[in-house]
């Protein structure tokens, strides 16, 4: 329901700490980063952009983990069991 796409932070605006410049395939836009003020964003981080705001910091680790897991499907019986292990870490609750 909400179009949001990944972009990489290429410039932090010193003059205005509410904003950063992101790059999506060579297209740049100044976006508001207030919604991620607790994430301590750094240059080079990837964020999800929706209506001109950074909504979420993308986790490279989680992305790679998912792709690794899926690439093992069919090849190892454990992989399919792992798919279920994808559940939330309940300790955080």
């Amino acid at each position: 329901m909400c179009l949001a796409i990944p972009g990489q932070i290429v410039e932090m605006l010193d003059g205005d700490r509410h904003y950063a410049v992101v790059n999506v395939c060579g297209v740049r836009r100044k976006i508001n980063i207030d919604l991620l003020k607790n994430e301590h964003l750094l240059l080079g981080d990837w964020v999800l952009i929706h209506v001109g705001f950074a909504m979420s910091k993308i986790s490279e680790e989680q992305a790679n983990e998912q792709l690794n897991l899926l690439s093992m499907l069919n090849e190892s019986d454990e992989a399919i069991e792992e798919v279920q292990g994808y559940q939330f870490d309940n300790e955080k609750v």
């Binding site: 919604l35 979420s56 993308i58 998912q66 399919i80 994808y86 939330f88 609750v93």
Partner: peptide, 30 residues
């Protein structure tokens, strides 16, 4: 696939396939 598996195992849980973007607690600032 995860839905099919839960049903086969008789589970009804909330699972997160989109963990690269979605944290459990959401976005507190938002």
């Amino acid at each position: 696939l995860m839905l099919v598996k839960q049903m086969r195992e008789g589970r009804f849980e909330v699972e997160n396939q989109y963990s690269r973007v979605v944290p459990y607690e959401g976005n507190m600032s938002a």
